[in-house]
Design a protein around this nucleic acid. Structure first.
Length: 586
RNA sequence: GCGCCUGUAGCUCAGCGGAUAGAGCACUAGCCUCCGGAGCUAGGGGCCACAGGUUCAAAUCCUGUCAGGCGCGCCA
């Protein structure tokens, strides 16, 4: 398992102990689950703890404490890694790791830099992440925004975990919805020219349709009005589709979400990919005709019933192109497909996995991340929207109002299978209430510290150039331990496809940094005047006493600056995974 | 009716087999002669929806019930 050097050393020490005990016949089994290491909640429980003895106890038919003792007895040269190991209450092994080992974490971060936290889990396997894929029939709404943020972060996480990631947007440019868009625009266009025509049933409304008709009129005048309806409508559709795609691309660019490829549904129809896919299903006896329609036998693969792919009127359903699309993705040779969908599509998971199996792939080749709905709030009050009437707040409006960083962070703040309340007022506040600034401020604060140090001619060393033995305070090691946990947070976050774990980690890390900053001095006071008696001005005894008791030598300053620099590095890396910037000043 | 998601502090949510269940907000009381107070310290506040079960160990796994959301189309 790729992780930080401390966990590497500790797990291999434990592995060796288990191995030895097993060889000596002190343990009956010779294989065991991966050893999980936790950061204990209480300082007296050491730096790292493992429950491995308790996990093995039942198989060994022995008391957990007994197993723990056996492991402890077989630790080879414990002094090389540990200061202290003890067995606690139910059978935990509580370990206090040598401080020099912890200090090495800083050097590791320095060496790896922006790559710190990355791992090799994916081993170069190819994965295609498909997300957003909003219909080009209107501007993106806030739900698409959450999907974009989640998809982008998931792709980043997978890439950081050694996968070869491609990002794709599937454009629904065929079928009823774009046709309806064309009809809606055509109707408005005609209305502009004084004709009384009704909007198509279920047609698109909203101001953007009017704008499209207006733009069309500006560029073509009355030209379309004289054309036969079918042709005019087709022209309207093409125009509106192009415009909407342009808007969507622009909005995504503003949101700083990018794709490697844009895949057109229409291309599947024109290239014959749809018929080819259906032919293959028919050959496999997974397609049959009944009641004048064609059906996919998805129930053979666990779907609750078979699905129509070609209607009585001869038109394909969307499922037909989705079948062809996923077949295409599989044939492109990806080892893993990840689809990010709105949670209202959850009912389609069984049938899409049936598709994957139907083409001879294991169904977990496709993983679906469901993203729950977003409720837009303003000062605690729900913002009412009606998609039917075209009255909704667009992603663009939200991003323009609060900024891409804040919007992304908010979208990723909750686990994606939970509903999200997005409060615009809270998002706009530049205060402690706003968690985005809290994390970004940690980064800016370090940057500021460095600026001040440099302006005073104080050297700002890297860990390799600092005397890290000057780090002795428990608060310093609390920070280092947190930094060392980052790689495993990334790993678990990637495996679970859950970017929100990174958000929580960063909030905790930022908190430790702010606490440290407040409690300890890093640079010597600027003023020449003696401030050692400042205690009388500071009423908060606990904090003040620590702060003024400390001997701030140049070594301590240098080591702490080196430490702060690595905290900033990890904040930057984490925010990078979320697609959020780490500002130097705010 | 069936399926999926969710019920954890007043509110918004982490935790998803392990030690006395955490954070932010809100509330209360404090902290700027000093590296950015967009910050910090302390405090109160919990039958982890309910009931059974599995386990040495359950907020976490299983079953059932209740509540909320979302789906259940020859729409996408």
């Amino acid at each position: 398992m790729p992780r930080d050097i401390v966990r590497d050393r500790v797990t291999s020490a434990l592995q060796d102990a288990l191995q030895q005990a097993s060889q000596k016949g002190q343990l009956t089994i010779n294989s065991w689950p991966p050893i999980a290491l936790d950061l204990p909640k209480r300082p007296e429980w050491g730096d790292l703890a493992t429950a491995i003895a308790m996990n093995l106890a039942s198989q060994e038919r022995r008391a957990p404490r007994d197993v723990a003792q056996t492991i402890l007895d077989n630790l080879d040269q414990p002094r090389a890694v540990f200061d202290h190991v003890e067995i606690a209450a139910p059978g935990f092994l509580n370990m206090t790791v040598k401080r020099d080992l912890w200090r090495n974490v800083l050097a590791q971060i320095e060496t790896e830099g922006g790559a710190y936290g990355c791992n090799d889990l994916g081993k170069g396997r190819r994965v295609l992440v498909e997300y957003v894929s909003a219909n080009p029939t209107g501007p993106m709404h806030i739900g698409h925004g959450r999907g974009a943020a989640v998809g982008d972060a998931v792709a980043n996480l997978l890439r950081a975990s050694g996968f070869d990631v491609s990002r794709e947007y599937y454009i629904n440019d065929a079928g009823r919805q774009v046709k309806l868009l064309g009809q809606s625009v055509y109707a408005r266009y005609q209305q502009r020219h004084g004709r009384t025509v009704a909007l198509p049933e279920d047609g698109y409304q909203g101001a953007y349709i009017d704008h499209l008709a207006e733009r069309l009129h500006e560029s073509l005048g009355t030209e379309l009005a004289d054309l036969p309806a079918a042709e005019a409508q087709q022209r309207c559709q093409e125009f509106a589709y192009r415009e909407m795609m342009h808007v969507i691309r622009e909005d995504l660019r503003t949101f700083r979400v990018t794709f490697d490829s844009w895949f057109s549904e229409a291309s599947l129809l024109s290239s014959g990919a749809v018929t080819a896919a259906l032919d293959e299903l028919r050959r496999r006896d997974l397609l049959f005709d009944q009641e004048g329609a064609s059906w996919f036998r998805s129930s053979s693969y666990g779907d609750e019933k078979d699905r129509v792919i070609r209607k009585q009127d001869g038109e394909y359903t969307y499922l037909a192109s989705d079948i062809a699309y996923h077949r295409d993705k599989l044939q492109r040779g990806y080892d893993q497909l990840v689809d990010v969908w709105g949670a209202d599509h959850h009912g389609y998971i069984p049938r899409m996995q049936a598709v994957v199996e139907a083409f001879g792939y294991p169904k977990d080749r496709l993983r679906v991340v469901l993203v729950q709905m977003v409720t837009l709030m303003r000062g605690g009050k729900k913002v009412e929207m009606s998609k039917r009437a075209g009255e909704f707040v667009t992603l663009r409006e939200v991003v323009d109002e609060v900024g891409a960083d804040v919007a992304k962070f908010f979208f990723l703040m909750r686990s994606s299978d939970r509903h999200l309340d997005f409060d615009l007022e809270l998002a706009k506040q530049q205060s402690a209430d706003n968690p985005v600034y809290y994390v970004q401020y940690a980064h800016a604060r370090v940057a500021s510290l460095v600026r001040v140090a440099e302006s005073r001619g104080i050297a700002v060393p890297k860990p390799s150039g600092a005397d890290l033995s000057a780090l002795v305070d428990p608060d310093e090691f609390t920070l280092i331990r947190k930094l060392s946990a980052y790689p495993s947070v990334v790993e678990h976050s990637a495996l679970a496809l859950e970017p929100h774990r990174i958000v929580f980690y960063l909030q905790e890390l930022a908190q430790l940094l702010h606490t440290f900053y407040f409690k300890h001095r890093i640079l010597p006071p600027a003023a020449e005047g003696d401030s050692t008696d400042a205690g009388q001005f500071v009423k908060d005894a606990t904090v003040a006493s620590v702060k003024h008791r400390e001997q701030l030598t140049p070594q301590v300053t240098g080591a702490r600056l080196a430490l702060m620099g690595q905290v900033a590095q990890v904040v930057r890396n984490g925010l990078g995974l979320l697609g959020v910037t780490a500002p130097e000043r705010m």
